[in-house]
């Protein structure tokens, strides 16, 4: 495949639920080997966009290409082939509660490869070791911490060695140390294995640390408001929405600008 060709291309994508449009008519590319971050405030449609990209929801309009293959209209074996190109880590890990970490990681191997069992166990263990969970191999998801769950989920997503990993809010709900460890892990995997990462996040620190390129979505604009290197955006962008986000400015000034107008509503009596 052409090295410079984007691994994911989004064309004129519109997505939402029922008849509510959440992001409208967006276009972007993700290049091979980069760490690409989708960011934006709460409710701006980051997760919705991600779920459309991984084929959980059908977009209202537009196309999603993985290389030359279009996910939106694929079905059957073709779709399975495209889906096999990426792994997904969900916000809370979504590990199967009745299985140990090892079994969780082995599951995709059991289903899609015909490796001998010994080999599968070895592959699964090495994936767990890659995310520093070699000591928790036989534990159940309920008995490990949030950070460990996320790492185990990354191990499971990598089980079949996909070229692309989607991470949904990897840093959310983690303490600073675990979060930093996760950033290190992402950088490490990206550098050593050349995996392309698509990350949904709003944790500024880890974005600065890991992201090669970001796009920023906004709830009201319903579209991409900025695209580029996060530090560059922080330092140079003139867009008020971008400034607010990167400099953590609240959108309302100090409370107390509105005048009290007595209402004739008697409900509170």
């Amino acid at each position: 495949m052409d090295e410079n060709k984007p691994v994911i291309s989004i064309r004129n994508l519109t997505c939402g639920y029922d008849d509510t449009v959440i992001v409208k008519n967006i276009n972007f590319d993700v290049n091979k080997g980069e760490i690409f971050v989708i960011l934006g405030g709460s409710g701006c449609g980051k997760s919705t966009l991600l779920k459309n990209m991984i084929g959980l929801y059908q977009p209202m309009n537009g196309q999603i290409f993985f290389g030359d293959d279009e996910l939106t209209n694929a079905s059957g074996d073709k779709r399975d082939m495209i889906i096999r190109k990426f792994g997904v880590m969900y916000q809370m890990g979504a590990l199967f509660g009745s299985m140990s970490l090892l079994q969780n990681v082995m599951l995709p191997l059991e289903e899609f490869t015909n490796l001998p069992r010994e080999a599968m166990t070895l592959v699964a263990k090495s994936k767990l070791a890659m995310v520093n969970l070699e000591n928790a191999t036989y534990k159940l998801p309920a008995t490990i911490s949030g950070g460990m769950k996320k790492r185990a989920a990354i191990a499971r997503a990598m089980a079949l060695d996909p070229g692309i990993l989607f991470l949904d809010e990897p840093g959310a709900g983690l303490d600073p140390i675990s979060s930093a460890e996760l950033d290190e892990l992402i950088l490490n995997l990206s550098r050593t294995l050349g995996i392309t990462f698509v990350i949904v996040s709003h944790e500024l620190e880890s974005i600065y640390k890991t992201a090669d390129r970001v796009i920023m979505l906004d709830k009201d604009v319903k579209s991409i408001v900025a695209e580029g290197d996060p530090k560059h955006l922080r330092d140079t962008s003139e867009n008020i929405l971008v400034k607010r986000f990167f400099h953590r400015l609240p959108s309302l000034g100090k409370t107390g600008q509105k005048k009290y107008v007595p209402s004739r509503n008697k409900d509170t009596r």
Binding site: G55, L56, Y90, A94, G97, L107, P108, E111
Partner: peptide, 17 residues
């Protein structure tokens, strides 16, 4: 139902299962 809430069903789907 619990698996659905934990996104485990989504995880299955995106694994191609």
């Amino acid at each position: 139902g619990t698996m659905k809430i934990n996104e485990e069903l989504d995880a299955l789907t995106t694994m191609g299962l």
